[in-house]
Every structure is written in C-alpha cells, then in structure tokens.
Nucleic acid binder design. Structure first.
Lengths: 212, 212
DNA sequence: CCTGTTACGTAACGGTGTTACGTAACAGAT
DNA sequence: ATCTGTTACGTAACACCGTTACGTAACAGG
C-alpha cells in the first residue's frame, strides 16, 4: 500500500511549507531579524513544528542557502559549453553579476555572511554528493585552464587557479560593493553598467594576451 | 578650578575602558557572540554602566568601527603624496590589502557586515566633521583623476569615478574572498601573494595605456 | 484491539538587549 | 555648612529569543 509514500509526501510538503515561509522572511529581513516564532506564526504552527524538520535555526537557514547555491550553479554552468574560452569567461562573469544583483539577498546569504564556521553536514539534502557552488567554481577554473592551454593569457600568467581566483575576486567585489554603495549619494556611485563595463575591460585587457 | 575637567577626563577614561574591553571581545568572537554582560563583567561593572556611555550595543560597536576607519584612512592617505599616479595607485592598493589582511576582524566590521541601515549620527565622536573612510576614498578618486588627466589610462576609460570604483571592487573582492576561502582545502586557494600578484597585474595592465 | 512511532502543541528554561527605579557621590549655590 | 540638582551606576525586572522537556493525539502495522 502507498500509505508510507503518502506520509513521506506530506512530510516533504510540510518541510517545504516551512522553508517557503522562512525564505520569504529571511530575504525580507535578514537572518538575525527573523524569529522562529515569526516563521511558525506565518504558517500557523508552533515553533516546535520547525524542530521536527530542522535541527535548529541555522540548519533551516543553511538549507535555503543550499537551494540558492543550486540555482547559482545552474546559472553559471549554463555557459560551460561555449567553445571560445574568452567569450565563455565573459558570459560567466556577466551571469555571475546578474545573479547577484537580481537576487541580492540570496547572494548575501551565500557569500556575505560572517564566517559560517563548520558546515560539513551537507550530504543528506543532495544525493549527488557534490556540494553546491562547486560546479560553478569548477566551470570558472576549467575556463581558465583552457585560456592557459590555448595561450590566450599574458606571458606571466601560468597558474589557472590563481587567475580564476583573481577574476572571481574582482567580480565578487563588484557585486558586494555595488549592493552596499549604489545608494550612498556621497560616494557618487556609478551605475551597474558603467562599473561593470570598466571591470570587464580591466579583466579582459588585464589578463588576455594582446591580439593585435 | 579644574574639577570639571577632571570629571570629563574620568568620564572619557571609563568610556575608553569599556571600548577596550568591547574591542577585544568583538575582535575575538564577532558581534553577535558578544554579550553586554560579558563586556560588563570583564571591566567589573554592571551592564547599566555601558548604557551611561553608549546608546545601545550597536552604538558601542559603531564607535569601535569608527576608530578602525580612522586608522584605515591613515594607512591609505599616507601614500597620497606620491607624485606618479601609477605608483601611487599600486601603493594604495597594497596598503589596502595589507590593512585588511593584518586586521581581518576590523575589516569585517567595516565592510563585511549585512547592511548597516541608518548611520547618520556620527558627528559627535569626530569634531572634524568628515566621516571616516571618506579620506581614503578621496585619495583613491584623486589618483584616478590624475591618471585620466595625464592620459595614462586606456582610451575608453574617461570616468575617474567609475575607474576608482572598479579598482576598489577588485581589491575589496580579493580580501573578502581571501579571508573566507584561504583555509578551505577543496578550493585549493592560492597564497595571498600569488592572487594579489595576478590581481595587480590585471588592474594595471587592464586600465593603463600600454607604454611600449 | 493493541503498540510503537511520529508530529506537534504547551509551557518552561536560560540567556539576551534594554530599562524603570533607587541611591550614593558630589559640584555649585546659598 | 547645608541644600539641591545632576550624574554614574547597581538591582531587578521586562519582553523576547532559541531551544527543549513533556504530554498527547493521530495513526500505521501487527
């Protein structure tokens, strides 16, 4: 009989119910400002119900971040098939920025938290085993490997990992500062397109061997 | 009689006592993990004593960050006198990275917090009026203005502010990712010198007009 | 019908930031 | 010398937080 499957389905549905409410609140107010009682009230349960499905508040939060990382992976690995590594790098970079700026609170959750301490218990949610975010990183690294192998980089740049990490740094810095500064009038922060344009120029002219 | 001055001096001393204890604890454990009762106990007072000198926990924290910003300003404006804007930019960049990596928790407090909401009440601590961090930013902007005026940048780069913001983004991204990733074995993060070297190459080759 | 498990509500615990209130110290005025 | 207003600060409380001990009702499997 399919009753155990139904139970499993209901359990999963309730878990999703909690996560949806939690996501909405976390995105709207940030981690610290959200209360388990708020989440519970929104779904008309007691806080105890949350503890049935999650170990604690941080665990619940982590599951949400985990999902965001999967979407993030999807958004970047989508361009992994582009043959020309230069164009691929540019596409990945722009996809990265677009993801971060269209889902800013998700990006904050993922990359702008004070150090997340231990997080080795992430195997259960994804059966695949590969942890989230890794695929996006591998796509970037692979692109830099191609750039090196095809001799597209300036003579001094021979370590694909160092190049990948420098590029990632630049793009990550762009979005984090953009999110924090774009509405501070005293800084006269330039538009997303302007700063991104300069940064992309900087990255490409900076690491690519001149072709002329 | 100098008694009112003595009172002022004592008041300032007690304020400093609180801030020293708080700084130590915040740097050691981070904002959320520190308790007003812990701070109070360390200096053998009750929590009420803290409220005599600071509006609330966040205000106390903010004063500390404010001081860090002054040191930050000092560290960067020190190189403002260098004549050659290219060398000046490099020195500023390296000073930025050194500050961030030698005082990582301070840097976290300053630039890696989830949005700090309203912070318009900062006039009292500094009599000067100019808010902290502004001097460092102005130094960077002025350097980019010089680069543009001296025709040292690539043809497309004509907006000094956009260039300054892109450069800041790159360096900020470097230190934040470095702080978060350098001890994650799976990423195979490269050493500070390696990634910084690639990034500095990227910045200089990326924005400077080729001299050959 | 029994029995073990599971989901979940009630009520509590210890700890948090914050504050109402009382008090003791004390500078300045009378 | 006494009064008075202000200031610093301790005590004890408040409301709220994450978390948990405990009870219970539902219910699948035997």
């Amino acid at each position: 009989m399919g009753t155990s499957e139904r139970i499993e389905r209901e359990r999963h549905a309730k878990r999703a119910l909690i996560m949806d409410a939690a996501r909405e609140l976390f995105l709207e107010r940030g981690y610290d400002a959200v209360t388990l009682r708020q989440i519970a009230e929104r779904i008309e349960h007691s806080t105890t119900a949350i503890y049935v499905h999650f170990a604690d508040k941080f665990d619940l939060f982590q599951q949400l971040v985990h999902d965001d990382f999967r979407r993030f992976d999807d958004a970047l690995t989508r361009h992994a098939g582009i043959a020309d590594p230069v164009e691929r790098l540019q596409r990945i970079g722009r996809a990265y920025v677009e993801f971060a700026l269209t889902m800013p609170r998700s990006y904050e959750m993922m990359f702008m938290r004070p150090q997340l301490k231990a997080e080795f218990e992430k195997v259960p949610p994804t059966s695949g085993g590969a942890e989230p975010g890794k695929a996006a990183y591998q796509t970037l690294v692979a692109t830099c490997v191609d750039l090196v192998h095809q001799g597209r980089l300036r003579p001094g740049l021979i370590d694909p990992l160092a190049v990948a990490q420098a590029v990632w740094s630049a793009v990550h810095g762009l979005v984090t500062l953009q999110l924090r500064c774009e509405h501070e009038p005293e800084l006269q922060w330039r538009s997303r397109e302007e700063v991104l344009g300069v940064l992309m120029t900087m990255i490409c002219e900076g690491i690519l061997r001149p072709t002329a």
